[in-house]
C-alpha cells in the first residue's frame, strides 16, 4: 500500500473530504489580524510560526497579537483589529464562551472572522467558518497507518483515555470504524490508562501478563503519554517495543519524539500547525463572495521515527 491508498482509507473512515479551497487568484494585498491564545506550548509556537510564514508567503499585511493566555487580551486585540479596519480576522479562541459581543462588533464593521483550532459555543452566523482537526479523524488515521503497516492483520490492545472523555470516545470510534474494514484486525483488550504514562504502563503490564506479549501485535494509545508508559512496560517484559509490538499514539508531545528516536514507538499524530493556510483560504473565498462550509477539517500530520531525532531537537 502507499500513501494514496492511505488517504483513501481515511476518506472512507471519516466520511468527509478535506476541503481544498484553492486560492483562485491571489488577492490584492490584504490586511489580516490574528488573535492567538498565547505561547503556552511548543505546538502553539509552531502554530504561530507556521501561520506567520504562510501570511508572509501570501504577501499579507499581517497583524499578530499574543493573548498571553487571557481572553480579555484577545478581545482587546480584536477590537484594535476592528479599529484598524483590517480585511479579516483569524481567532484562535482560548475558551468557548464570552465572544458574542466582540464578534457582533466585528460583524457590524463587516469584518469576517474565521476560527482556528477550537470552535465556539456561539451563534454560527457570527463567524465565517471554524477550521480544526477532529478526534474521530485522529483515531482513523492511526488505524489506517496500522492497517498499512500490518497489511490488515493485527491483534491490537487499546489504551483508552479517561473513561467518558470526549476525546477518548471519538478516538476510539474513529479507530474502530477503520479496522472494521479489515477482517484480520481486531481489538483484543481495551482498558483505560487515564491519559497518563503511569496508567499506560500499569495497564500494559497486566495485558502482557494476561494475554502474553507474543499474542499482541500492536498498542493503540489514545495519547502519547500512555504510549510512553506502554513502551516501558514492554521493555521491562523483555520485549522490544516498536518491533515485537508496534505502538501508535496521538498528540505529538515533545517527549514522544525522544521515545521514538530511541526506537520505542512507531508513530504519532500531530494536530496540524498548518491551519493558518486553510483559514486564509476560507477568508479569501468569503471575500470573493463564495460560499464557505461552516466547518473545515485539517488533517493532522503523522510523524515517524525517521524524523523523530530532528523533531526532538527542535522541540525539547
Amino acid at each position: 500500500m502507499n500513501i494514496s491508498n492511505l488517504t483513501k482509507l481515511i476518506k472512507i473512515a471519516v466520511g468527509t473530504t478535506v476541503i481544498a479551497l484553492s486560492s483562485a487568484a491571489s488577492m490584492a494585498e490584504l490586511t489580516i489580524g490574528f488573535a492567538q491564545t498565547g505561547s503556552e506550548s511548543g505546538w502553539r509556537t509552531a502554530f504561530t510560526n507556521a501561520t506567520k510564514a504562510e501570511a508572509e508567503a501570501r504577501g499579507y499585511n499581517f497583524k499578530f497579537s499574543d493573548g498571553q493566555g487571557k481572553q480579555e487580551n484577545q478581545i482587546k486585540a480584536i477590537r484594535s483589529f476592528i479599529a484598524q479596519g483590517v480585511d479579516g480576522i483569524v481567532l484562535a479562541p482560548l475558551v468557548t464562551t464570552g465572544w458574542d459581543k466582540v464578534l457582533k462588533e466585528a460583524q457590524r464593521a463587516k469584518i469576517p472572522v474565521v476560527l482556528v483550532d477550537r470552535g465556539l459555543d456561539s451563534d454560527p452566523s457570527l463567524y465565517v467558518t471554524s477550521v480544526g482537526s477532529d478526534f474521530t479523524q485522529e483515531g482513523a488515521m492511526i488505524a489506517a497507518w496500522l492497517a498499512v503497516e500490518t497489511e490488515g492483520t493485527c491483534d491490537i490492545v487499546e489504551l483508552q483515555g479517561a473513561v467518558g472523555a470526549d476525546a477518548a470516545i471519538k478516538r476510539q470510534t474513529g479507530f474502530a470504524n477503520v479496522i472494521e474494514n479489515f477482517s484480520g484486525m481486531k481489538i483484543i483488550a481495551s482498558q483505560t490508562g487515564s491519559w497518563s504514562a503511569t496508567g499506560g504502563k500499569e495497564v500494559m503490564e497486566s495485558f502482557l501478563k494476561s494475554i502474553g506479549g507474543e499474542n499482541i501485535c500492536a498498542v493503540w494509545a489514545h495519547n502519547d503519554n500512555m504510549a510512553i508508559g506502554a513502551a516501558q512496560a514492554i521493555k521491562e517484559a523483555g520485549l522490544k517495543p516498536s518491533e515485537d509490538i508496534l505502538i501508535g499514539s496521538v498528540d505529538a508531545i515533545a517527549e514522544i519524539f525522544k521515545t521514538m528516536a530511541d526506537g520505542e514507538t512507531n508513530v504519532t499524530l500531530e494536530l496540524s500547525p498548518y491551519q493558518g493556510a486553510a483559514a486564509f483560504d476560507a477568508l479569501e473565498a468569503h471575500l470573493a463572495g463564495k460560499d464557505v462550509p461552516k466547518r473545515i477539517t485539517v488533517p493532522g500530520g503523522l510523524f515517524y521515527p525517521e524524523t523523530a531525532a530532528e523533531e526532538w531537537a527542535k522541540r525539547k
Partner: peptide, 13 residues
C-alpha cells in the same frame, strides 16, 4: 521515576 516523567496534570490524581 516509574516513567521518568512528571505528568503533573495527572500525577497523584
Amino acid at each position: 521515576a516509574d516513567v521518568s516523567t512528571a505528568e503533573i496534570n495527572r500525577l497523584g490524581l
